[in-house]
Nucleic acid binder design. Structure first.
Lengths: 251, 251
DNA sequence: GTTCGCTATTTGTCTGACTAAATAGCCAAA
DNA sequence: TTTGGCTATTTAGTCAGACAAATAGCGAAC
């Protein structure tokens, strides 16, 4: 069925990310989603009915309904006849869904939420690094090395450097050869991104992140799980510390 | 906005679970979703166009489109004009989404996938137990106790006993007071459910799971994080062993 | 006070038409 | 022959308006 498989993968992905909001249903889902996760609508609140809502937004009812289906698929709302569409309880939200996460970071996320994300990193990434040390293949190792070199030369002040940072963490997760684990990469990537933002907001000469990263890489390259786990623990711990310091008003 | 808050929560939830598939768009999404995760459609495959598909299924195009929006929201497909709707690469799927997970288990999941899920449990649950030991409140402790008592009296041979088992693991995650972590409960619940299925498939008198569970509970009740971590490690480790033994043909 | 059935409201579904985007392939120019 | 842009075609996207199905809540009957 597939006719070509050329290297346009990257381009496709980038286009898709934009496409997700360029369609009407996508942008309505995004707007409503942001309004919900930012607390503008509370769990239990009932949205206006479809006819009124679509009129207010000046879109057709079908486009609005498709937006609602998207939100419902991510657990943010639920619809039923007569009652209407209501915002669901927070514990039903798919918080680790890439789009939901993006909506969270659209308006600045709460400190509590960020802490939760870091705690998750602290649990998952050291274990992932240990698995990666056992299972990584040469290609993945090479991608990690390239990412770190890129990160080193571009620094975290550039978008390219930050992307390289995320690539590194992503590839570690991929190297666990564990599909469910790998799906957490978007969540962890979000946390990584915000580490950088907070660090830079705080001080002009942030701590150099490269030595920690190279230690993780070396342990994975050497195939030493325990060493990789410890190195990653230190890396994430320091990142957490930096972020905490940037948030904490006592500073 | 909310008028009542009576104890009908459980009923609502149960009804919702059914409602998710009782509507046409929901059942089409489920059917296609199962077909995709079971490999009946491969990543890169292009679905028939909307008009043909909806005609074949004897539903309106709008109902079919809403189904596609659901699948797209979970990362299983992506649509664009002229190209059509294609199944996305596996690494874009929201594997930890409750519905996607349910679709996986609709047809028997692959051994590799199950192993991945267990590995995730092995990483997340001990850490969660440790956090729970520090943060649980009295109500959560009480729910854990009740769940274990129920599990003990009903045994895992009954649906009620299995639900109690899941409740216990659920409440441990909830007690971490970490929202992103808590969203993993559906994934872990799925793994728990399959442990039971495999164990019972294998032998008539499975190992008694209660002592392990009570040890975890006692450590959490006593507020001892390290002890809770170790107890949960043992519990999940044994569950993994049981499941592995049930899968392994050498037996 | 309790039960049962009715009704108004809301989502769900359908139809058919038109719009817009993406692409393949052609055609003309170099 | 190659290149570059144009155009025809195919597909999803959007729209409008109608009818169906479900059900929460009210009111009548008991």
């Amino acid at each position: 069925m597939r006719k070509k498989k050329d290297k346009a993968g990257d381009g496709d992905f980038a286009r898709d990310s934009l496409a997700a909001t360029s369609r009407i249903h996508g942008s309505i889902a995004r707007n409503l989603g942001v309004a919900i996760v930012s607390g503008q609508y509370q769990p239990g609140d009932i949205l206006n009915n479809e006819i009124d809502s679509s009129e207010q937004l000046q879109v057709s009812r079908s486009a609005y309904r498709e937006a609602i289906r998207i939100l419902a698929a991510k657990g943010l709302v639920e619809s039923r006849p007569k009652t209407g569409t209501r915002v669901t309880e927070r514990n039903r939200w798919s918080l680790l869904d890439p789009e939901v996460l993006a909506w969270f970071f659209e308006s600045e996320p709460s400190e509590e939420f960020l802490k939760g994300l870091y705690e998750l990193r602290m649990i998952v990434e050291p274990a992932a690094a240990a698995l990666a040390a056992e299972r990584r293949d040469d290609g993945q190792l090479e991608r990690m090395r390239k990412a770190l070199i890129q990160m080193e030369s571009q620094t975290l002040a550039t978008e390219a450097g930050q992307a390289a940072d995320r690539d590194f963490h992503d590839t570690v997760l991929e190297a666990t050869a564990n599909a469910p684990l790998f799906t957490l990469s978007s969540s962890i990537g979000a946390a990584v991104r915000w580490t950088t933002i907070f660090k830079q907001r705080k001080r002009e000469l942030p701590r150099d992140p490269m030595p920690d990263h190279w230690k993780v890489f070396d342990a994975i390259a050497a195939g030493r799980p325990d060493q990789a786990r410890q190195a990653m623990e230190r890396l994430v711990g320091l990142a957490l510390e930096d972020t905490r310091a940037a948030i904490d008003p006592r500073d």
